[in-house]
């Protein structure tokens, strides 16, 4: 569908303006010529492929576009997010299909001892054999293996800090020889840290009470009774 006024050259990469150098990449085993330096996901579009499963935020946050790739003559297969990685000559890549990891379902409010409950929800978590494949697979550079052990030893705070960067792409899961889903273990530990082991913010609770008790009612009445000019004056005076 073409929309009037929709300038695709601006919307995607400006091939015409760039007059790019073309490079050869291999997408799922098939060779294509694409402009050098465009992102992996744009290379897919450029090669004529529609991507629905695998395109999400396009900004490196949602983890939808997990991809395996290899650069020219390097035997090492690496991982990346397709929206945040530039193609280079001789690169070969394939998007990773959704992996059927098991997410434990739990009711936060019913957890009695979250650090112990971890072993019921994810009994495989302590079976890590230290192969470190998860850490190597993480496109966010998280020390995933260490995070799993922190979770097992009850350092949920440590886990939550390490995994704040986690985009839940799941690339750590298929490589685990102990069938652990480290991202899901970490999410559980992080949520438990927030819900059970963090201080109650006193000021917030006071504010909730103040609102319930009508502390701001007179100020609301004063503001909402104003006509547009008066209100404009009040707003204009805000520094």
């Amino acid at each position: 569908m073409e929309l009037k006024g929709f300038d695709k050259n601006i919307a995607i990469d400006q091939e015409e303006v760039l007059r790019p150098k073309m490079v050869t990449v291999e997408i799922a085993g098939k060779k294509y010529e694409v402009p050098e330096g465009i992102t992996v996901i744009k290379a897919l579009w450029y090669s004529g492929q529609e991507v629905i499963r695998g395109a999400g935020c396009l900004g490196g946050f949602c983890g939808a576009c997990a991809t395996y790739y290899r650069t020219k003559d390097d035997p090492k297969v690496r991982t990346c997010l397709a929206c945040s990685t530039a193609v280079e000559d001789g690169m070969s890549f394939t998007m990773v299909p959704p992996f059927p990891a098991r997410k434990a379902t739990y009711q936060l409010s019913e957890l009695k001892d979250p650090k112990q409950d971890l072993f019921n929800l994810y009994p495989e978590a302590p079976l890590c054999r230290n192969c470190n494949a998860c850490t190597e697979a993480c496109p966010q550079g998280i020390d995933v293996r260490d995070g799993v052990w922190k979770a097992v030893f009850g350092d949920f705070k440590g886990v939550s800090e390490m995994f704040m960067d986690c985009v839940m792409c799941g690339l750590c899961v298929p490589v685990c020889i102990a069938d652990i889903a480290p991202n899901l273990v970490a999410l559980y530990a992080s949520r438990a840290q927030g819900a059970f082991f963090s201080e109650k913010p006193v000021r917030l609770h006071e504010r909730i009470d103040e609102i319930a008790q009508g502390k701001y009612q007179s100020e609301w009445d004063r503001i909402l009774d104003m006509d547009e000019q008066q209100l404009k004056g009040v707003c204009a005076a805000i520094k």
């Binding site: 840290q193 963090s198 006193v202």
Partner: peptide
């Protein structure tokens, strides 16, 4: 707003804190 912050905290959202534990 404030009750929403509480709801999110109860679900385990980790907002940044001041040293005294307040948000």
């Amino acid at each position: 707003g404030p009750s929403i912050a509480k709801w999110l905290l109860d679900l385990g959202v980790l907002f940044d804190r001041d040293p005294d534990g307040n948000l």
